[in-house]
């Protein structure tokens, strides 16, 4: 390979393989730095697969972070119960991250609802109180009717936040069930691969089992429905603004699409009649 950055990375790996155990924490830190650099140099290293290489580097970085935490825990002499507690906390965070990355909120709201870019924490209670306070003020305002769309949007954001909390609560319960099952089935002598496979199996099984029950189904439904309602209410508000500016609104575009659909059906019908006539003629 001719890439200088890649050659440097390979040389560093070869060197770190022969280094003393005492420098291991420093190696982990250096590996993180290499992975950050890998993402910067991805275009040079693998020009045809930049995205995939960046993804590998990010995944590796997370894996190294986990290893660093385990190393620290071992150095502190933490026991299995403490490790399980850390795992529990990590899983709850992963659940939240997963829910947030799947939320197709209008981007204007992401900054309002997320306190850190990496979605480490959801909206704080302070922000939720702020939303509720805004809603109350608008409802008590003499211009209450004028603010109908905005009120509906705020309410749907609050509903979505509540649905998110509910879903996260269910997912956290899934994590707890999975940890219990894993603890029962894990053997300290097992190979790392076997333990990972067991964990994946326990979690996915617990997850699917949860969906056999109505509460999880209802929570899932509430999450999707409340998010759809946020999108609808946001569109209604945007429609009001663009109409005031003289720009075609989404509802007006929908009317055009309806008209186009009717025309297309008419054309398809005519095409099929023509085809039938041709067939009859050819026979």
């Amino acid at each position: 390979m001719n890439n200088p950055f890649l050659e440097q990375f390979q040389a560093w790996i070869a060197q770190s393989a022969t280094s003393q155990d005492e420098g291991f924490s420093q190696q982990l830190s250096q590996m993180q730095s290499w992975m950050r650099q890998m993402q910067v140099h991805a275009t040079d290293v693998a020009p045809n697969h930049v995205q995939k290489l960046s993804e590998l580097a990010r995944n590796s970085s997370e894996w190294v972070e986990l290893l660093a935490q385990l190393t620290q825990a071992q150095a502190k002499g933490e026991n299995a119960a403490q490790w399980a507690d850390k795992l529990r906390h990590k899983l709850h965070q992963l659940n939240l991250n997963s829910l947030m990355t799947q939320a197709t909120l209008p981007h204007q709201f992401l900054n309002l609802l997320i306190t850190q870019p990496s979605t480490q924490t959801l909206a704080t209670d302070t922000q939720s109180e702020m939303l509720s306070a805004m809603l109350l003020q608008l409802e008590q305002s003499p211009l209450k009717l004028k603010f109908a769309s905005l009120r509906a949007l705020l309410q749907s954001l609050i509903d979505w936040r509540n649905a998110l909390d509910q879903m996260q609560s269910h997912l956290n319960q899934v994590s707890e069930t999975a940890i219990e099952q894993f603890t029962l089935g894990a053997d300290a002598e097992s190979d790392k691969e076997a333990l990972i496979n067991l964990w994946v199996s326990c979690y996915d099984h617990a997850y699917r089992q949860a969906f056999n029950d109505q509460p999880m189904q209802i929570a899932q439904g509430a999450l999707v429905n409340s998010l759809a309602q946020v999108q609808l209410n946001w569109q209604a508000l945007v429609d009001e603004w663009v109409e005031a500016l003289g720009v075609p609104s989404r509802s007006q575009m929908n009317q055009l699409i309806d008209a186009l659909d009717q025309q297309r059906r008419r054309i398809r019908g005519l095409e099929q009649e023509l085809q039938a006539i041709k067939h009859a003629r050819d026979r």
Partner: peptide
């Protein structure tokens, strides 16, 4: 485990670089 991971990662990167 870290060394094993690095080996696998490097192999993957080399594959992508040449692909």
């Amino acid at each position: 485990q870290m060394q094993a991971h690095q080996k696998r990662l490097l192999q993957a990167i080399e594959t992508l670089a040449a692909l």
